[in-house]
Amino acid sequence: MASSSSSSSTQVKKITLKAADGKHFEVEEPVAMEMETVKSFFVGNEDAMKDMVVPLLNVSSEHMPAILDFYRNHSEFRKRTPPPPAEEVKAFNEAFLENKSDEQLMEMIMAANFLNTKELLNFLTEAAANRIKNKSVEYVRAFFGIENDFTPEEEARIRAENEWAFDGLDED
């Protein structure tokens, strides 16, 4: 891992990140380096550390605090010996998702994708899958605001095409 072991605990190096809407965030270096996108910004460019502001074009400031919180907690989980009990990680993850709307979840997936952090992205995509699992087609459509642009004939044809998938499905 490239997270430099800066033992100077008195002054943790900070990196300034700029969200899509222009808001600045001061982030401890190791936390910022969890994001591959930020890390690649600094690779081979050590001087840049001091005062450069890293623009994060696809991340809205609304989601920055939560995302940073996720990195901080999960990197702490990873470092701890013995590893934290599964319940503790689960409790954190559940609390993380608790008040997030589907829309916020999607935006955060885009953000995690842009930041190129596998752990967060895997976690969020899993959460998205869980939210649409076992839901009827009509429900999923309404849930995510997908507009049905099939004609009734087309829709019937596709249903017939994948007949076995629609077997026994709730029609509400």
């Binding site: 899993e126 649409i132 087609v137 999923v140 997908i146 049905n148 998938a165």
Partner: peptide, 17 residues
């Protein structure tokens, strides 16, 4: 995301749009 679901659920999304 579709890969994380039961395959039956994944196929059902073909009807969304």
């Amino acid at each position: 995301i579709l890969s994380l679901m039961d395959t039956k659920d994944a196929v059902q999304t073909s009807i969304l749009s």
